[in-house]
Amino acid sequence: MNNDVVIELNNAWKIFGEHAEEAMQAVNSEGLGKAEILEKYGAVVGIADCSFNVRRGEIFCIMGLSGSGKSTLVRHVNRLIEPTAGEIFLLGEDVMKLSPTALREMRAKRIGMVFQHMALLPHRSVRDNVAYPLEIRGESKARRWDVSQHSLSLVGLDGFEDRFPRELSGGMQQRVGLARALASDPDVLLMDEPFSALDPLIRRQLQDQFIALSEQLHKTTLFITHDLDEAIRLGTRIAIMKDGRIVQIGTPEEIVTNPADDYVRDFVQNISKLKLVFAHTIQVPFNQYKPMEGEDLSRSPRVSQDVDLDYLIDVAVKTTQPTVTTDENGNDVGVVSKDRLLQGIRDGK
């Protein structure tokens, strides 16, 4: 097992309903589909045959519409929901084989979780909310206060520790939720649509804050969202889910430029590709390019072939010449004409 893999899910299945076990057997032996299982066994397939790895320090986004099973999937990692079949490894340990005590131990020390509806305890002060995981672990009060203070300052909530959750705005409440998840200094962060319930503006702010925080703390994060923009902004890699299945896993660019099927293509269509498509994708090899009339490649601006379209546009508007791209050694490797650039903006190819 790769030491760098923090979370590993292999062929996980979750079927809800009374006859889940029988339905699972039927799936294994006969390969029934979702609709057939519902019809035959009255059971609902939550997630079907999901496998993925999350590497140390990466933010792994799971994106899907509501009902696609993404929230169910994330709850398998800390076994809030028991899978019907499949393997789950967390930090190299087989989660399915943990005793109840060991499982609690793991939840308390290794995993921090942030919820869509904050799930703060209304009768406790912000400090006591943040310190809750430590309290469960039986830490002393002094330690709890120190850690929660620190954790709150990480999310920029200094001075709010003696307030109650209801005195805070939604965005601040979610920051408390994040501080609570960070308080136990977990190895893994599970974030279940943490920003979905917030206003767009505040959501944006929290995303920025979260990006900054991740760069500082390097927490391995499993991030659930229904918003592709958010996934692309935050994710190192993205998994797209549909009807309980993972349709595609890849980097944001792979997803945008190379959608696995029509479903993903539909999604990606309206995503701005300017920052996700790079010069090397749309350039014509330098030696194959035939300059048009009045074009002189020697007067063209030179940019790295790794710049994104956004940057290319900035360069292109300042000149009448096509842009020449270079590799890391400064050699000319390709040309991006204006036609090509426009085409790239339109298709991402």
Partner: peptide, 27 residues
């Protein structure tokens, strides 16, 4: 008692008794 609050307590490793006295009864 909202399910998500209880779930949060479980996710942080609280025992049944801690959930009962720390979360459910107060709410």
């Amino acid at each position: 008692v909202p399910g998500h609050v209880k779930e949060a307590a479980v996710a942080f490793g609280a025992t049944k008794w801690k959930i009962l006295f720390g979360v459910e009864l107060p709410l």
